[in-house]
């Protein structure tokens, strides 16, 4: 289990990096934290001819807050997000999702940009970012682009990034401080990719009705899924146990998660419904406390 040979560049600036991507395109692959790419290379399931290692680009490793929006550089490590008190306080869903990612050794090295670019439908971060309506800043020699989550995530392990494009930052809009959030998942072992999970963000009006809600599902299809029907049903109404049950049932309508060794499609659909119900219950509980 040793990787096949490859050429290697370690640019020191974004400009240098996109220059290399423009030059080599399809031949090369960006190496961020490497926590998903390197195992694949060790199995020789991935064998890029060239790696453009962006670990040396300091500007990509910064966490910034601008006009209330969170800007995560692509090379921000999971552990940085996990340890940030500011993120835990202002974007708690992000914090709650990150702690489910692998184990500490993985989070110390793994990056938010790498997680997005890898586009594993079982990965926590893309799901949480879908719930948060994050935006993705992309750069190439051809110029910048800003993508919504449903524009960047295409399908399993596939994004809309062109070979010459580099994901530089993730932008998360400000969150209403009264919002209740929950990230719930179930894996066969803690730290494994989830068999199913849900990210919920819900805001309640003074009269207890739902003023805003986002429900995103993990391991529910080829890319993160926003349960729009469930959101539609919840918005504007009282969020009691019955409403949560109805919304959870609606959330899994028409889903086609993949069967595998660890869970059949039927099992996963049922699990996603349970996860949605638990996440909603938890988030509503928090939102109720915050609204009070």
């Amino acid at each position: 289990m040793k990787p096949a040979p490859f050429d290697y560049d370690d640019p020191r600036s974004v400009d240098e990096a996109i220059g290399l991507l423009a030059r080599y395109g399809d031949e090369c692959k960006v190496l961020a934290g490497g926590q998903s790419l390197v195992p694949l290379m060790n199995f020789r399931l991935a064998r890029p001819g060239r790696l453009v290692d962006i670990n040396g680009i300091e500007s990509l490793g910064q966490v910034k807050v601008e006009n209330g929006r969170l800007l995560l550089g692509a090379m921000v490590r999971h552990a940085q997000v996990e340890r940030s008190n500011d993120i835990a306080a202002r974007w708690p869903l992000l914090h709650d999702a990150i702690v489910w990612v692998g184990h500490s050794q993985i989070r110390n090295r793994g990056t938010v940009g790498g997680s997005v670019a890898h586009a594993d439908p079982a990965a926590e971060l893309p799901c949480a970012l879908a719930a948060l309506d994050a935006k993705f800043h992309v750069l190439s020699r051809r110029g910048p682009r800003v993508l919504r989550w449903d524009q960047i995530f295409v399908s399993e392990f596939t994004t809309s990034l062109a070979p010459d494009e580099l994901l530089t930052a993730i932008e998360v809009p400000p969150q209403d401080p009264s919002t209740g959030v929950a990230f719930v998942e179930f894996a066969r072992r803690h730290g494994d990719f989830a068999l199913g999970g849900a990210a919920v963000s819900i805001t309640l009006a003074r009269n207890g009705t739902c003023s805003d809600v986002a429900v995103a599902l993990l391991s529910a299809g080829p890319r993160p899924v926003r349960a729009e029907e469930a959101e539609r049903r919840l918005k504007g109404g009282q969020v009691d146990e019955a409403a949560i049950k109805q919304a959870s049932a609606a959330a899994v309508q028409g889903l086609h998660p993949t069967s595998d060794l660890h869970g059949s499609r039927e099992y996963r659909v049922k699990l996603l419904q349970v996860m949605t119900e638990r996440a909603l219950t938890k988030a509503v509980h928090l939102a109720t406390r915050r609204a009070a």
């Binding site: 199995f43 066969r188 072992r189 803690h190 730290g191 494994d192 990719f193 595998d260 060794l261 660890h262």
Partner: peptide, 15 residues
Amino acid sequence: LAASFMDYLLPTSEE
């Protein structure tokens, strides 16, 4: 189908 430690699941300290 269990061809790696991702799929052949040894119990961890959490289990």
